[in-house]
Design a protein around this nucleic acid. Structure first.
Length: 468
RNA sequence: GGCGACAUAGCCAAGUGGUAAGGCAGAGGACUGCAAAUCCUCCAUCCCCGGUUCGAAUCCGGGUGUCGCCUCCA
């Protein structure tokens, strides 16, 4: 069995065949750090974080690179509006990005290059493009010459003249062809700039990813990923640049995640419906947001609303409860054997296989969640009916949930904390009261503990507690 | 105008030829002193019309609808 990935380049699912297995080189287009990230950004980062973790789970050694775009028009405009240096703006939002994404349990990339730290590499790349005849300079600006690159449009699946019909030239641009794009931009007054063979200037938007991935990998990437809106022009241009400079494909597999809409509407500043991760985390559990994002296939459009977050939460808590049940059952587990044990063991093996099958098929997280819920039911039945429990089996189930959680990270699977003596004593007192059928006292104690954030649940095998 | 995606129950969502996963919500039941948790049962023939096939949600043709890209955008 092999992992299949939908490759935007070929518009079909292909078997993953990395260039140098078990290594998988993986480049994800990172944020432009001019503002807080929104939930749509978060979808991208969570999606590819899960892809990365799954590849890891399947035995690949993933090297993940994710850049920070810390110089471009948006950066400059925002810095000017706020009257701060571009560098200062970048530092602030890189920090914010790492906090936000960290709260969402997205693991940091192995390499996190910033565009402005790689100006020499960018300049060299532009020089190679000029030497190879794929670029031209006009008064300090350097453009990529799409007229010299017949394959332009291959990722977008459009011919040059088709793309041309919608293209337009910004005032002040001096390019030969409307599809040509800027590699190096001459300095304007008040903008950050670096020395170059074409005078002071700064890099264009697309060039950084080509330059940095080449610098850190120096070979065709296995996977290059980003949001669907990056297909054109960003990724199209990256492909053209890397080919022009080094005559090699930038990446073998191109993955693009779908849009996230807010209440069926595209998120946009003008509609005023941009939801930052930062604000959402004020009212929502990050696990719930992850659940929502993983509940649909990553290439499908995904809607976002409070209602859907609540639905996600209800479903997710079912899994959390199951894990809690499992952990507490483990406390009293021994080496009992039973018919139910055989059933659960089989369901576990099935679940393992089905999980891999779902995820191998272009990371079908929605399907995989179904597998997880099926096993949860089976495990709950076991816990309900198979007392006394078999410890080995429960531990094996728990191990599987830990493995899955290492990929999806939807629940908290920490060992139960020990109870402080006072609370333990109260629980014991309540038990005694229940035996004596003094339910008024029992309920009173339960209410007291509830106020302190401890929820009690009576089971046939004793009382369980959990934190609110 | 060009290119492309999607259309599955009240909601979310898998399934790409063999007779509709899973979750949320809802109804009924079991268990419980009560509660919580859990379990059981019920709840869709897959936008419409044609076609191919022994057989289609799944393939083909034609509609209708929604959305995206072609311009900064994750």
């Amino acid at each position: 069995m092999a992992i299949k990935i939908y490759n935007t380049l070929t518009r079909s699912k292909e078997e993953l065949k990395p260039g140098a297995p078990p290594l998988v080189t993986f480049y994800v287009c990172g944020p432009t750090v001019y503002d807080y990230i929104h939930i749509g950004n978060a979808r991208i980062f969570i999606t590819f974080d899960v892809v990365r973790r799954y590849l890891d789970y399947r035995g690949y050694k993933v090297k993940l690179i994710q850049n920070y775009t810390d110089i471009d028009d948006k950066m400059i405009n925002r810095a000017n509006e706020e009257g701060v240096a571009v560098r200062e703006l970048a530092d602030r939002y890189i920090k914010a990005y790492e906090e936000d994404v960290g709260a969402l349990r997205v693991r940091a990339a192995d390499v996190k290059p910033k565009a402005t730290d790689h100006i020499p590499q960018i300049i060299k790349l532009v020089e190679r493009l000029l030497e190879n005849g794929y670029a031209y300079e006009i008064n300090g600006d350097v453009y990529f010459d799409t007229g010299n690159y017949p394959r332009y449009g291959q990722l977008t699946r459009q011919k040059r003249d088709e793309l041309l019909s919608g293209a337009r030239v910004e005032p002040g641009e001096k390019k030969k062809n409307p599809l040509d794009f800027v590699l190096w931009k001459q300095k304007k007054e008040g903008e950050p700039a670096w020395e170059s063979p074409w005078g002071e200037g700064r890099p264009g938007w697309h060039i950084e990813c080509s330059a940095m991935s080449t610098y850190y990998i120096d070979d065709t990437l296995d996977i290059h990923a980003g949001g669907a809106d990056l297909i054109f022009p960003h990724h199209e241009n990256e492909i053209a640049q890397t080919w022009g400079a080094d005559q090699r494909p930038l990446a073998r597999y191109w993955m693009h995640a779908g849009y996230l809409n807010i209440e069926e509407q595209k998120m946009s500043k003008s509609l005023g419906n941009v939801l930052t991760v930062r604000s959402l985390l004020q009212e929502h559990d990050p696990f719930d947001l992850r659940f929502l994002i993983l509940s649909a296939h990553y290439r499908s459009p995904l809607n976002f609303s409070d209602e859907l977050v609540h639905q996600s939460r209800s479903g997710r808590l079912r899994l959390q409860e199951m894990v809690n049940n499992l952990l507490s059952a483990l406390d009293s587990a021994g080496d009992a054997a039973s018919e139910q044990e055989r059933v659960l063991r089989k369901d576990l093996e099935d679940a393992k296989a089905r999980f891999v099958e779902a995820m191998d098929d272009d990371f079908n997280t929605a399907d995989a969640l179904g597998v997880i819920f099926d096993l949860a039911r089976s495990c709950n039945i076991y816990i309900k009916e198979a007392y006394p429990y078999n410890k080995d089996l429960l531990e094996e189930v728990l191990r599987f949930y830990r493995d899955i959680n290492d990929i999806f990270e939807l629940v908290d699977i920490s060992e139960p904390e020990s109870l402080d003596d006072e609370i333990a004593e109260k629980i014991a007192r309540r038990e005694q009261a229940r035996v004596e059928k003094d339910f008024a006292t029992a309920d009173q104690i339960r209410d007291q503990l509830l106020e302190r954030g401890i929820i009690l649940e009576d089971t046939p095998h004793g009382t369980r507690w959990k934190k609110k």
